[in-house]
């Protein structure tokens, strides 16, 4: 465990908590893509099937929190606060993300076993899972500040993981090309948003796209 990994994980955890609190406190999931949240629930489920293989208390606890929080979020959006769900703007075709991720996982993986293919699928799936949310923001042309903070924390997490991978490559001589390439793709998808976040939201303005 190095500082980049730890801050990355905490940023990831913070993002999930921000989103849950936002929905719970405002009793609304307006501006949130339910489709992205379903994709994240799929990501954690397929990745953490290795939960019985104990690594550390930290590892087990985080996995359980990520899985539980993702299902709680999906429940809040599609059941409890369903009336506030903005489905007219959540129109990204997720099959265009799920199917290619799965096919790619079948073709490029570390080991052709059920667990490994599902783990690889989760890595590919995660890298593009935010697209329905970013699509929704671009469609409505704006995002609430709290939604922007959520996206910033979530995007920062994989960027910090890239630093962690560079660190591990230099200190432990270890690297995972699948995670690295997918992690870079994932981070690049947030670049446009990062720019808007720094130039607008941090200066107290609302994230609004030019008309």
């Amino acid at each position: 465990m190095n500082i980049f990994r730890l801050v990355g994980d905490l940023s990831h955890l913070l993002a999930i908590i921000i989103l849950l609190l936002k929905i719970w406190k405002t009793r609304s999931c307006a501006g949130i893509s339910g489709k992205s949240q379903i994709l994240f629930a799929i990501v954690y489920t397929s990745r953490y099937l290795d939960l019985p293989n104990f690594v550390s208390m930290y590892n087990t606890l985080m996995k359980i929190v990520f899985i539980a929080a993702s299902y709680a979020t999906v429940y809040l959006i599609y059941m409890k606060f369903k009336a506030t769900y903005d489905h007219n703007h959540d129109t990204f075709r997720v099959e265009f993300l799920v199917l290619p991720s799965f096919v790619l996982a079948l073709l490029i993986n570390h080991d052709f076993t059920v667990l490994e293919v599902l783990w690889t699928f989760s890595i590919y799936m995660e890298s593009v899972a935010i697209l329905p949310q970013l699509f929704m923001v671009s469609k409505t042309g704006e995002a609430e500040s709290i939604t922007s903070h959520y996206l910033f924390a979530l995007g920062s997490y994989r960027a910090l993981y890239i630093l962690n991978w560079i660190y591990r490559y230099t200190t432990e001589d270890h690297y995972d090309l699948i995670a690295i390439v997918a992690g870079i793709v994932q981070t690049v998808l947030y670049c446009d948003f990062f720019y808007l976040y720094i130039t607008k939201v941090l200066k107290g303005k609302k994230l609004q796209l030019p008309a």
Binding site: M1, R5, D9, H12, D50, N53, V55, S56, N59, M62, K63, F66, H110, E116, W119, Y161, N164, R168, Y169, D173, H174, Y175, D176, L177, I178, A179
Partner: peptide, 10 residues
């Protein structure tokens, strides 16, 4: 260089 999955990562 060792390539492969980092089992401790999330």
């Amino acid at each position: 260089h060792r390539s492969g999955k980092s089992k401790d990562e999330l």
